Amino acid sequence: MPGVLKGFLTFLVSAVLSTLTLLLVSLLTGGALPTSVAVLLGLGLGGGYGLEAGALASYDLDTGKGWLELLVDTTWSLPNTLFGFVFGNLIYLWFGDLSKRESEGRGWVVYLPSGPGTGFGHDVLQTLGTVNLGGAGLHEKVHVLQARILGPLYLPFVAFSYILTFTLQVLWTVTLGGLLKLLGVRDTPYFRPPDRSAVGGFFGWVYFATPIELWAYATEHR
């Protein structure tokens, strides 16, 4: 299939299915999401995502897998896709540039850091929905799969997980962990993540102990 046709179909499918999905949400919620808003969001954000993904040839529409990824991302996993499209692009454009090489046929949109270095985008990668900073790394594609499996439950699940692990970390730190540190039994009052965690320190355990990260680290591709 010619690249131009793939790009057009990606845009068309994304705009149409995003709009239909949001109209269905409007219907099922008794108009809690107004019809006009559903159409504007579907055509604006869904169409915008389709343009971006189409320009990067993100979906391999010569294969059933590519079509399935596109259909899932614009229906069941649409909240994650639109979240990533909005916030991923707003954040990642400050750290890198869109990469067609890393996006083409891989079912996502990738930003690569614009220069050498360390830190965010280099050795600390992140994925929001289907928009990524830094490339595949070890387990970033696992997060895309998680979003596709959990669909509209994914973002609330992630938020609840971080609230839970942060609360546990704080409670431990200001109680038994703090006491053990004062007695010299521990060198830190807080739980520490393992060395393989991409994030260290106090917030490292908060990050690593969330179910999505435990899942990702357990199934990542080396």
Rank of each mutant, 00 (worst) to 15 (best):
M1W: 12
G3P: 03
L12W: 14
S14V: 02
S18T: 07
T19K: 06
L23Y: 02
S26W: 05
L28E: 12
G30V: 07
A38I: 08
L40Q: 04
G44Y: 02
G46Y: 12
G50M: 09
E52F: 00
G64Y: 04
L70I: 13
W76N: 01
S77I: 11
L78Q: 08
P79D: 04
N80W: 04
T81P: 03
G84V: 13
F85D: 01
G88K: 03
N89R: 06
L90F: 11
L90T: 02
I91V: 14
I91D: 00
L93V: 13
L93K: 10
F95S: 02
S103A: 10
E104A: 15
R106V: 08
W108P: 00
P113F: 11
G117C: 09
H122S: 04
V124K: 13
L125D: 01
Q126C: 05
T127V: 15
T130L: 13
N132V: 10
E140R: 15
G151A: 01
G151M: 03
P152D: 07
L153H: 05
Y154M: 02
L155D: 02
S161L: 03
V170H: 07
T175W: 03
T175E: 05
L180N: 02
P189M: 06
P193Y: 02
P194D: 08
V199M: 13
F202M: 09
F203R: 03
G204P: 09
G204F: 10
Y207Q: 01
F208Q: 07
A209D: 09
A209W: 03
H221A: 11
